[in-house]
Design a protein around this nucleic acid. Structure first.
Lengths: 193, 193
DNA sequence: GTCTATATTCAGATAGAC
DNA sequence: GTCTATCTGAATATAGAC
């Protein structure tokens, strides 16, 4: 067993505990206890509790940005791009539900200056989504709408997705999930006659 | 000045501070400082820090339940009912943005047994929304859809609304907000040809 | 209702031996 | 890399005088 894998185990244990109890409520002692060693050992792997939060948050944010950047750069039409973004969210949420939960629930616990740079990343992501929607309206794929409201609504619509994958028992089928969400975002709930 | 109004001032100050810093990060000293008195005085108005959270959370939850109950009991068609629920959310968010923000961001900080009873209220609210949607599908107003997914998506869609009213400068017009959100939830983003 | 003082508990983090 | 011991600071809450 090398140092890297034990560090990884420490981080995963931290992530799991933070998900269960919340970042502030999770103590270094809690994590150490679940690792079966003393608190002081935790500092072999990290310099501070904040490190844990920063590591996962920025790493996972990068993943989302990478995905949306590739989609925006593609030659797909806007409706297909939006579908791809939704699909990417489902994939990340399915693969890394705890990391995504952390992004939704704990980013406010970052301290300056990391807090500000993380907020910038969030704002930037919103701008990328807004750009996608604006292009879709311009190209006639999407209807005229208030872009600010639509952006907030759509991002909010897909933000809860991790929830389905943190409980083992309630995991929704990713294929059905994508079909249903795309159906609702694209066409809404009304039955067309 | 009677005791009631000072208590109310204390609670409002608490609410504002909790919104700014988060519940866990807000100390009794922070609140007292903003009230211009010593920490110990805070306990003239509440028995514990938890009291503050419980008070606002259950009071505001009750407000949402009251609204949706009246709507479900009405004789409107399902699509009109959904519109009314969205409208109610916008109204509460506009009137009590800090309380709604608390509901979204801080309910996990409740302690047992209040935590469990609050979770029950949340689950119950989801069930009421699911019922509304199921009725709409049955009556032919809404299309066939996975009710679980649609419920989560719609509730998530309207959960961010407080955000527009906590910043003074970015407040969206409630009428436009309602029209846009109903438009998106009912018909989606696609332009119909 | 306000203060000073304090009890109590707990958390993050470090020092230094093995 | 693990432990024991400890520092340091901070937070909730209470006691008791004015």
């Amino acid at each position: 067993m090398n140092l890297g894998s034990k560090k990884e185990a420490f981080l995963q244990t931290s992530l799991q505990l933070i998900h269960e109890k919340g970042f502030k409520a999770t103590t270094m002692r809690d994590i150490a206890e679940r690792m079966n060693f003393d608190v002081s050992n935790s500092y072999n792997y990290i310099r501070s509790k904040q490190d844990i939060l920063e590591l996962f948050l920025f790493r996972t944010s990068e993943e989302f940005h990478h995905a949306i950047d590739n989609i925006l750069d593609s030659n797909y039409a806007s409706d297909e791009k939006l579908k791809q973004v939704i699909s990417a969210h489902i994939q990340v949420a399915a693969k890394k539900p705890l990391e995504v939960a952390l992004m939704v629930n704990e980013w406010r616990n970052l301290k300056e200056p990391k807090y500000s740079s993380y907020v910038e990343l969030r704002v930037l992501y919103e701008k990328k989504m807004a750009k996608l929607l604006r292009e879709g309206v311009k190209s006639g794929k999407f209807k005229e709408m208030n872009i600010k409201i639509a952006t907030a609504l759509i991002l909010s619509s897909i933000r809860w997705l991790y929830d389905s994958y943190t409980d083992e028992n309630s995991a929704l089928n990713p294929v059905e999930l994508e079909r249903e969400i795309v159906g609702l975002v694209f066409n809404g709930v009304l039955l067309k006659h």
